[in-house]
Amino acid sequence: MTMLQVSVYRYNPETDNAPYMQEMQVDTGGRDLMVLDVLHLLKEQDSSLVFRRSCREGVCGSDGMNINGKNGLACIKPLSECVENNRLVLRPLPGLPVIRDLVVDMTQFYRQYEKIKPFLINDTPAPAIERLQSPEEREKLDGLYECILCACCSTACPSFWWNPDKFIGPSGLLQAYRFLADSRDTATRQRLAELDDPFSVFRCHGIMNCVNVCPKGLNPTKAIGKIRTMLLQQAT
């Protein structure tokens, strides 16, 4: 038996006065399981434990959580990459309201995403088949379109913790740049105008927590820098 010591955040607003950490042990059989596998083993012991998951392969973005102090996707985080001293500590994503156990309320996160109008805007007449892009133009979207909206980055960002209602956050800004950089989008001006306040973009202080945690290896800080440059170019 290879027992892993797991400490998991528990909170059920209907029965608990306050959140607490539950200590549990899991037999990993010495295998390098993913954190999500451990969660399922925990759920076999205590079926009241609640967490989100769906694809179990890092595609849907539903099992973002704080694993031994660092945000990540439970389904693609092997124990060998996060366990220290045979101990695993699981908490919900920081900064967002907890609905129950590891499940957080993502409303604020999605509201910021909504603000950046995450769809192509193009007022020119639609062509017969499709709007074409050159390979070079398409290449500009690499490193941007892959975002799965898991919220690992935004909930690791202090600026988002302090102003989740005003600062778009790394995830939303990466997406904002994804549409600013798209050759088929014609709303660049309006998009930029909506970002030029002291909070939406400029609360980013380049701490790069977002880059540090993104499970898809994306770089929101770089995208934010590009938005800043675009704002600067437009204004001078």
């Binding site: 105008a193 030029d196 306040d197 002291p198 909070f199 939406s200 400029f202 800043r228 600067l232």
Partner: peptide, 18 residues
């Protein structure tokens, strides 16, 4: 757009450049 009447230049870009 988020308004911020007490900020220095009221534009994030302006404040940032300043």
């Amino acid at each position: 757009m988020v308004t911020a009447v007490t900020s220095f230049g009221r534009s994030g870009l302006y404040d940032w450049m300043m």
